[in-house]
Every structure is written in C-alpha cells, then in structure tokens.
C-alpha cells in the first residue's frame, strides 16, 4: 500500500498529534464531561489509523507489529481485573468496589477509582481496534507480495 501525496502527508503530520491529544483529553475527563474510556480509546486508534492511511504501510515497515498492540491490550484488561479485585483484598466482599476517597465531585482528581478504569479501558479499546486494523493491512501486504 503506497502513501498519498505530499499535501496529505504534511496535513496528517499537523493533525494526528492533535487528534491523539483530544483522545487523551476525552479519556481523562471521562468522569466530568461526555466521553470516557470507550470514546477516547476509539479516537486514539483513529489517530494511528490516520497516520497509516496517509503514509502507507511501505513507509512503516509493518511486519509483525500487531504483536505489540495485542500485548498492550492484554496488559490493560489485566490491570482492570486487578483493580476490580482490589476491593476484595481490603476485606470486603464486593467486586468492583470503589474504595478510594471520592474527593470533591466535579474536580479532575475525584471519583475514586473511576478515572483509572477509564484510562485502562481506553488503552484496551485503542489497542484492540488498532490491532484489528493492522491485521487487515498486513494481510493485504502479504497478498499483494
């Protein structure tokens, strides 16, 4: 898959970082504004997909890149599971217990464990969608070879 023209490449260079930052903003403000882990994760994956489409897979030397994304995906869901189980370690018998101090509602550092869940679910969703896309791209590469 060849890349696109110089105009598209330059514009993508300028935009992709901003899209990535917007995804991070959506994730870490997930308990305050609309959005959260699922929305922000899809936007993060979208910024990478933008780069892959503009530059083409020749430029990126994709061979077995999806090994990295699946690693992040599995680690993130494992962390979510550990956070959910951490309530049990404190002696209560509640799965998904929000044991951390809640803070003042409406501030960035508040809502106990919810921002952490948001962050790790965001990583998991972004890595999943990116590995699906990379698998399709690599499959197309191998076919055309």
């Amino acid at each position: 898959m060849k890349g696109m023209t110089v105009v598209v490449k330059k514009t993508t260079q300028l935009i992709a970082g901003l899209v990535f930052l917007y995804g991070i903003y959506i994730i870490i403000h997930g308990h305050l504004t609309p959005g959260g882990g699922f929305a922000g994760g899809v936007i993060l994956a979208g910024s990478f997909i933008l780069l892959i489409l503009a530059y083409g897979s020749d430029f990126l030397h994709l061979v077995r890149e999806e090994a990295g994304t699946t690693l992040y995906e599995n680690l993130a869901i494992l962390v979510v599971l550990v956070l959910a189980l951490s309530g049990l370690l404190l002696g209560t018998h509640v799965f998904f217990l929000n044991w951390a101090p809640k803070g003042v509602a409406g501030e960035l550092i508040s809502a106990g464990l919810l921002p952490l869940y948001n962050i790790f679910i965001g990583i998991e969703v972004a890595a999943s969608i990116l590995s699906i896309f990379l698998a399709l791209v690599i499959f197309k590469e191998e076919i055309t070879k």
């Binding site: 997930g30 308990h31 305050l32 504004t33 609309p34 959260g36 959910a84 799965f95 998904f96 929000n98 809640k102 803070g103 509602a105 409406g106 508040s110 809502a111 106990g112 464990l113 919810l114 869940y117 948001n118 679910i121």
Partner: peptide
C-alpha cells in the same frame, strides 16, 4: 455521592454495572 462521578454514564458503566 455514591460514585463521585459527575458523568452519570461513567458512574453506571464502571461502578454499578462493572
């Protein structure tokens, strides 16, 4: 008061319906 989350959807998603 229960979840500390202003966004009710996030509260339902990760606390009540984890």
């Amino acid at each position: 008061e229960k979840t500390g989350s202003v966004n009710l959807v996030t509260g339902v998603l990760f606390d009540f319906r984890g």
